[in-house]
Design a protein around this nucleic acid. Structure first.
Lengths: 271, 271
DNA sequence: CGAAGCGTTGAGTGCTTTCAATAGTTGTGG
DNA sequence: CCACAACTATTGAAAGCACTCAACGCTTCG
């Protein structure tokens, strides 16, 4: 995903990733990382940032298809995505997999393994991806010195819970077209937040992965892309997406069959 | 759910809830609570337990249908279920709800709101339920004094994430009958852990809630119960469940259509 | 250039839902 | 205490959405 079309008139954030880093090549710090707002340090004081900087191993490069970690690996480090994109997925006894999310630059991965000693999901790069590695035991130490750091860890985890709940709702209640529309809008929104075009971008994940995430068959996803295109909502060519009618897509996401309507008090009673 | 059939030959755990508490009525402490292993204090030293005890407000009683908290309420306290059962659910813009889980004695509720200031889900009692209230700011203070407490909070949250992922997998990949079978076995297992019968219990939630959790229509759930009964797997009468063939139910949970079989290397490659 | 994998499209099937009607349960008020 | 209302649960029949099966074009890579 991260290979989004860099929209000609894009914002400053775009160049920080590579330009700034390469110029002041000596040492990259969190302060001059364009993603710092999305990543670990939220509201950290200067001194705290320095402490954090000393702990982080920067810029490990992961090739497409490689794993950051696999399920059941011992949990020792947390990963912050600098560029590229990653999918996380869990597999169950019978061998089938469930994609649990796609992750873009600025996101933190691996925290859900806290306290379990072992990773409970796997993380695979969808394209060449660079990450910062944060040894968790060191981070845990910092936690005691920097209260806001602990808060941030909790924040990341509770956000994942919310995101999962949203995903559950989507798969349980929404028809296929609404799921895909919502997925695309979600992506669009993420790119927007990172200073890329919200209406034109490349998908870094396969149709298979999308289908898996959304609880659909690959063929269904493929057909839906075609339908959306026929309706003039977007143009899709392989991985390249151009959204023409954002509002139209929004409408699709609300096409849920059984809407109890504002007529509340329906399922709100105990059994 | 907690009104499980108290299986005539049940274990000691059963009587602690009411008997012990009422006799040594002066003050209930975490130490003499039969659920302490499931609840907050994991591996706490004696002194730590005392600190915790001083923070907890015990035994608030919630009637069936009442809420412990609602979505968007300001988050201030965490709830530990002592007896009864609770459902948590989120609602989305359009008004439809998604049940995210049922919760039994010993479970901790509300933690997913940490860091957001507001609850992101609602919690409603499915029957008369008694809870311990833990003011979160006090708990947060304890966190600094008792390292294992912080660990436990993280543990509870990461368990919820895992549970959500499991739920996702289930709704996305499993046919209806497998979902209900899995749900029943999960309940059975929980009761077993709490010293109740694993093969005979009462459901405290409605068919509607079950259907909602599993992403099915109410009618489908009803039909499945009947089918299971016809197959001799269990007996169901209203809320009362007796499981006759635990292994048979297990088999049902593995009836997934597209099992990629041990023949791996399928979807494990990047796109 | 051929093999392998990804993506698209078509046809047919089936699982689950929706619609509809009935029975059982709970709660309230006369 | 019974009757009526409201809700929950069950069952049947029909319809539909998404899946499976299958074939083919396109892209990638050795």
């Amino acid at each position: 995903m991260a290979n989004a079309t860099p929209s000609s008139k894009s914002k400053a954030a775009r160049m920080k990733e590579d330009t700034v880093v390469d110029l002041s090549a000596i040492r990259t710090t969190c302060q001059n990382c364009g993603l710092y707002k999305l990543c670990l340090p939220m509201g950290l004081a200067e001194g705290d940032m320095d402490k954090l900087d000393k702990v982080i191993k920067r810029r490990r490069k992961i090739e497409k298809g490689e794993h950051l970690y696999r399920m059941r690996d011992t949990f020792s480090t947390v990963y912050a995505i600098r560029s590229g994109s990653v999918k996380t997925y869990t597999s169950i006894e019978n061998g089938s997999e469930q994609v649990t999310g796609f992750h873009l630059p600025g996101e933190l991965l691996g925290l859900n393994a806290v306290s379990t000693k072992f990773h409970t999901d796997s993380a695979m790069a969808l394209e060449t991806t660079s990450v910062c590695e944060v040894p968790f035991d060191r981070l845990e130490d910092l936690t005691r010195e920097i209260p806001s750091m602990q808060h941030h860890i909790l924040h990341v985890m509770s956000e994942e819970i919310q995101s999962d709940h949203c995903q559950l709702m989507m798969i349980a209640k929404m028809p296929a077209e609404a799921r895909l529309a919502r997925f695309l809008l979600s992506l669009s929104n993420h790119f927007d937040n990172r200073g890329y075009s919200s209406s034109e971008f490349n998908l870094s994940m396969s149709r298979n992965d999308i289908a898996n995430l959304l609880g659909l068959a690959v063929e269904t996803v493929s057909r839906l892309f075609s339908h959306f295109q026929d309706q003039g909502l977007l143009t899709v060519e392989r991985k390249h997406i151009v959204i023409h009618d954002m509002d139209g897509l929004m409408d699709v996401t609300t096409k849920c069959p059984s809407q109890p309507l504002p007529n509340d008090s329906s399922s709100n009673q105990a059994s």
